[in-house]
Design a binder for these strands. Structure first.
Lengths: 149, 149
DNA sequence: TATTGTTATACTCTATAACTATA
DNA sequence: TATAGTTATAGAGTATAACAATA
């Protein structure tokens, strides 16, 4: 029997950007999930909070559009963040269908801590220096933007 | 209210390789899943079949090691592939705990069709030319290998 | 009629523990 | 004792449809 060495992969997978991206995405997800777990957050929570911190969303619909997360999922995620004291929801007087979502002081603090953890995880995940790292990130960004169209 | 344009993302996410890899991984997964759905396969099925086709695994344990897929998951996945007529399982006479998994003719045909679909999906997902595409794929491979240690 | 938020549901993926048969 | 395969279970992520309130 062939004894597969740890880093062997069939060529159809090991040379497939598709397969490698899926695999890397899962690894990145797992690392970041473990990193922020002590904050009481999972990745989609962090994404929401950071979006609010950047002022890029004020309603649940905004969050849904920016993050491409289903509206129905946001409800439970925001319930959890509200219960943790990281956000508040209040009806928009100008359009009473909408909820205005606001970061609390406590929410801002947890975002700051999350950012530091995100930076740590990223250094471990992508061990590249200076311009090489920036080029790689820029390439990822281009592919994501292409996919968003 | 700010009207977020489609491709805007908070800097904390849009410049995070971690976030972008997660997102790209999910998109790649979804595209490939949709692509091979007509073959009656999902990505983990294809990965198994292609690993068998490459001769890199003969038992379920081998598949588990190469693909880093839990042994318990393989059982159901192989059940489905066996029922579809793409693989056969038979007890290894030399070690009767082991199942020897073999691709059928039908299995080889579906692998060939899957490869073509994988190539199509990849072209759409990573619209780069020649050396740029190869460099990007090589970088992904390096990061995956780092993560595998 | 269309939109925002909500509820309910179901399916996949994943991880885990416990079992069996063999070694 | 340890290993290969199996079974059962439960949690997280995701997608969908249907509903209430409001526009």
């Amino acid at each position: 029997m062939t004894m597969p060495r740890p880093n062997e992969l069939p060529a159809d997978l090991g040379r497939s950007a598709t397969y490698l991206m899926v695999r890397l995405g899962k690894h990145a997800q797992a690392s970041f999930t473990a990193g922020i777990e002590p904050l009481g957050l999972r990745p989609p929570h962090y994404d929401m909070l950071v979006t609010l911190a950047a002022g890029m969303a004020s309603s649940q619909k905004d969050l849904s559009d920016v993050l491409r997360v289903d509206q129905a999922r946001l409800v439970a995620l925001l319930d959890e963040m509200e219960e943790a004291g990281f956000v508040t929801r209040s009806q928009d007087p100008a359009d009473r269908r909408r909820n205005i979502v606001v970061l609390t002081k406590e929410g801002e603090r947890v975002v700051a801590r999350g950012r530091r953890i995100a930076a740590d995880v990223e250094r471990e995940l992508v061990p590249l220096k200076g311009s090489q790292r920036e080029e790689f990130t820029a390439m990822l960004r281009r592919l994501v933007d292409t996919a968003r169209d």
